[in-house]
Amino acid sequence: MRLEKCWFCSSTIYPGHGIQFVRNDAKIFRFCRSKCHKNFKMKRNPRKVKWTKAYRRVHGKDMTQDSTFEFERKRNRPERYDRNLAENVLKAIPKIDKIRVSREERHHKNRMKGKKEKLQREAVRELEQGISLVKAPSVLQEDPSLTLPKIKVKVSQQQSEENHPMEE
């Protein structure tokens, strides 16, 4: 039993699934489902379609280089059956899987570093720029209870309080 990869989205194709298209130069395009087949017929480039594995690899979303990927590889020569080898392989599979998942998590964490601060900064900027859409500037001026207590306060403790709601 051979598990192929979809030409478009690189997902695994189990036997009996999908469709394969044979071009006249004998290149075989395998597709996991009609979604991928249709996208191929529309001549879309999988590197430019966001949900495919190819896109995620090109744009650094997924882990690309790792030693755990070396185990899953297409081998043209079938391995001669060996009971011990088969046992060891079956034992190793969950371990390798676990390592791969943890490394992927680490990669994702690294990639998302600094995201929270960035969101915070953007939110603050939006609040500063867009407060006039919610309250007219004149209203803000004449009714000090609506604004953040800015002009009155001189004490350093309350200044920190003043900044605090802005950041949120």
Binding site: G16, G18, Q20, F21, V22, N24
Partner: peptide, 14 residues
């Protein structure tokens, strides 16, 4: 396209 014995399908250019 024509169904294969395992249930997948195959089609050609011409």
């Amino acid at each position: 396209q024509k169904g294969r014995c395992d249930g997948s399908e195959v089609k050609f250019d011409d």
